[in-house]
Design a protein around this nucleic acid. Structure first.
Length: 727
DNA sequence: CCCGCGCCACATTGA
DNA sequence: GTGGCGCGGG
């Protein structure tokens, strides 16, 4: 290890191994290098056993990279410390110790889809109206409880005002019971149950305090309260915790991330040493200027001074497009040009606020013949055909999983309809049976026809169970493919869609093959675990020469030579849903900051005068974040302001910079100052509650506004009829 | 009693 | 673009 490669602050962090440490690491400040050296220093110079070190990262990809770097430096026979994400860590702990409070070790993990279907069922049972209380909103609130370590028994109903949160609090205990009946945990449970486990079992907690004597937590600014409790519990004997983070990069508030953890840490861990890494090694001065200019407008932040010795580099390119197609074209053509000039696709990324924005880009890239990879969006393991097959595997392992069972009982169609299943479910409720047991007694419950089909289904599942015991997971999968008739049904369809589904199933087969070591027991379960816990980012292959497309959230922790960020419009970035809350608006700024600081050399930003989103056209204003960038570090290009709407395909690097196009470009609608309901106005609606105007058209009598409501989403309303109250 | 079609409302970010 | 639902045919 050559400590000459470290600056004084990094070196100080590396040498500080005993007692609490907070490493405030600005973007691109050599954080990973410092962390890796620190672990190596602990193992090699301090003689600390790797087993005694626990490092928690944000993604599996980051964990893998850190493990590789540590092992790479240690040479032959080196053992790696335990490096994983919060969720994988908790899953591993729970698999070992979960046999308490009614769960077995074969519990499954429910993803968002499963959660939603379970929450709907609970809402029906609790007689909560799905119209007035969208299941998604209820689920979000329940998730919020779990992120704050509020168990159902902790919640004081009379302390909550009437509203969605109160309803969620009513549904919450039903939902937890239902999860337990299904022998299932959701994502948030993984964390919450682990904390509960350690709180109720002091001995076990002591055991792990002894085991993990040195703990490191990366991306600390994005931890929630439950995760914070976990860190406290795991370190209460030794306080050897090093947290690494940057408040400017906190972008998961909506998922329960709690910036205050940064403040609490210094109180809860007395004597914390704080070290700031402020020298940026990644980006040009220009890029840092722009990023700093945006994030500096936030009131709630620790002042820091990120600086670099790097040269100022190219100015930021700002392209103002006619519409989203023109925007995509300009960005993709520019990238094409960079590649022609010798850039590698590996070193370029296109970032956007919402997944839906990728589609237009993909069309353009295909057209230009550029190979690309979309990270995120519909995940592989969430595709219908994959989830169907996985549901079979899940039920085979865990017969209590009624959510999966209901999914497959008539997939592919085999004559077991909703009516029969409903009857059996009702029967199960009365007799305290799980759904599979109910199906076994179908003859007592439904008519002879359906009963026979159900009996066949149950017999098939029993055979699968036998196969699972006797043979490998690969054989089992083959068996499921064939005996369920799933493949045959798809082959018969003979459509393009069916073909692509078959391809996906093929891919699933290879994935299982790769994963499963034939003789190892329990490997099917491990495979299923990974299917719920891998992030899409974990599959980003940065060695294949492929352009990466992803959201601003996903890009955290990555870096590229050149970065393009599209959709800089008020309403998209910052997103409409953030306009009514200052905290959320500030998070959008940080999101922008994270995006900018991914770039080493080049940054391109863009927006569009008109944009189609989900069928309707929006004319958002250029983003305030663009206006915050100092003009001297930016070059503007614009499409020729077109007279006809259809001319957006014409060559369009027409008007170069200058002029006073900056804040109010041609083609934008006139500023709304007159009759009220300007973009950004907060309003109240009798049914949808509070929202923000994000778009406006027409005037006076027939004025229509698009309002973004929390929970209800975007609504287009006629002002004359909607009874909107301006707040 | 099951199935498939067509209609409808829905759509931020994700381990 | 997708999933949920209601209806009429088998």
């Amino acid at each position: 290890m050559d400590t000459n490669e470290l600056n004084p602050q990094q070196l100080q962090a590396v040498r500080h191994t005993e007692g609490p440490l907070m490493l405030v690491a600005g973007a691109g400040s050599g954080k990973t290098r410092a962390i890796t050296f620190r672990i190596l220093h602990m193992i090699r110079d301090k003689g600390i056993a790797p087993e005694n070190i626990l490092a928690i990262t944000f993604t599996n990809k980051a964990a893998g990279e850190m493990r590789e770097r540590v092992l790479g430096q240690m040479g032959e026979g080196g053992r790696a410390p335990w490096i994983s994400t919060f969720h994988s860590l908790c899953l591993r702990l729970l698999r070992q110790h979960m046999e308490f409070s009614g769960y077995t070790k074969d519990f499954v993990i429910y993803d968002a889809q499963d959660q939603l279907s379970l929450v709907k069922k609970c809402m029906k049972a609790a007689q909560v109206n799905e119209e007035a209380f969208p299941p998604k909103t209820i689920l979000n609130h329940i998730s919020g409880f779990k992120n704050d370590y509020q168990l159902p028994e902790h919640i004081k109903l009379d302390a909550l005002p009437y509203g969605h949160k109160l309803k969620a609090a009513h549904v919450y205990p039903h939902y937890q019971n239902a999860l337990k009946e299904n022998n299932a945990l959701d994502f948030d449970d993984l964390l919450m149950m682990t904390v509960k486990l350690f709180k109720t079992n002091k001995e076990l907690c002591d055991h792990y305090n002894d085991r993990f004597r040195y703990i490191l937590v990366d991306e600390f600014q994005d931890t929630n309260l439950t995760q914070y409790h976990l860190i406290q519990l795991l370190s209460r004997a030794h306080h050897n915790v090093c947290v690494v983070g940057d408040d400017d990069q906190s972008i998961y508030r909506w998922r329960g991330a709690n910036l205050e953890n940064l403040l609490h840490f210094e109180k809860d861990f007395p004597g914390t040493t704080v070290i700031k890494l402020e020298e940026n090694y990644r980006s040009t001065q220009t890029i840092l200027n722009a990023a700093g200019a945006v994030v500096r407008q936030n009131a709630a932040r620790r002042e820091k001074n990120l600086w670099t010795r790097n040269e100022s580099g190219e100015p930021i390119l700002y392209y103002r497009a006619e519409d989203e197609i023109d925007e995509a074209r300009a960005v993709c053509e520019r990238i094409h040009q960079w590649v022609q000039d010798g850039a590698s696709l590996n070193d370029i990324a296109i970032l956007y606020r919402t997944n839906a924005q990728s589609r237009v880009l993909e069309d353009q890239l295909r057209h230009l013949g550029v190979t690309y990879q979309v990270i995120g969006g519909l995940k592989f393991y969430e595709r219908k055909e994959i989830k169907d097959i996985l549901s079979y595997l899940r039920v085979i392992l865990n017969p209590n999983d009624s959510v999966s069972l209901k999914r497959i009982v008539n997939t592919p169609v085999r004559g077991i309809g909703k009516t029969s299943v409903d009857k059996i479910e009702a029967f199960c409720g009365e007799h305290h049976l799980n759904l599979l047991e109910g199906l076994r007694r179908a003859a007592e419950i439904v008519g002879a026809g359906p009963a026979k089909k159900i009996a066949q289904f149950v017999a098939m599942m029993d055979r699968f169970h036998q196969v699972a015991e006797d043979s490998s997971a690969v054989d089992l999968l083959k068996e499921v493919f064939e005996k369920t008739g799933y493949l045959t049904a798809l082959q018969k369809e003979n459509t393009q869609e069916a073909k692509s589904r078959l391809e996906n199933l093929n891919e699933l087969y290879s994935a299982v093959e790769q994963f499963v070591d034939i003789d190892r027991k329990g490997s099917l379960r491990e495979f299923l675990d990974t299917t719920t816990l891998v992030a899409d980012l974990d599959n980003l292959d940065d060695s294949r020469g492929v352009l990466a497309l992803m959201t601003l959230h996903t890009c955290k922790g990555l870096e590229f030579d050149s970065v393009c960020i599209i959709g800089f419009e008020n309403g998209l970035l910052p997103h409409a849903s953030s306009l009514s809350s200052n905290d959320e608006y500030e998070e959008e700024r940080r999101l922008c900051y994270v995006g900018f600081t991914r770039a080493r050399k080049r940054l391109m930003v863009s927006n569009a005068r008109r944009r189609r989103i989900y069928g309707s056209t929006f004319t958002y204003q250029p983003s305030d974040f663009i206006n915050a960038i100092p003009r001297e570090v930016m070059t503007m290009e614009s499409s020729a302001p077109s007279m006809t709407a259809s001319s957006s395909y014409s060559p369009s690097y027409a008007s170069k910079s200058g002029g006073d196009e900056w804040s109010l470009p041609a083609g934008a609608p006139p500023p709304a100052t007159d009759t009220g309901f300007a973009v950004g106005t907060k309003v109240l609606h009798p049914k949808f509650g509070s929202g923000v105007v994000v778009n406006r058209e027409g005037s006076d009598g027939d004025m229509k506004v698009v309002v973004f409501f929390k929970g209800a989403g975007k609504k287009k309303l006629a002002v004359a009829h909607a009874n909107l109250i301006v707040v």
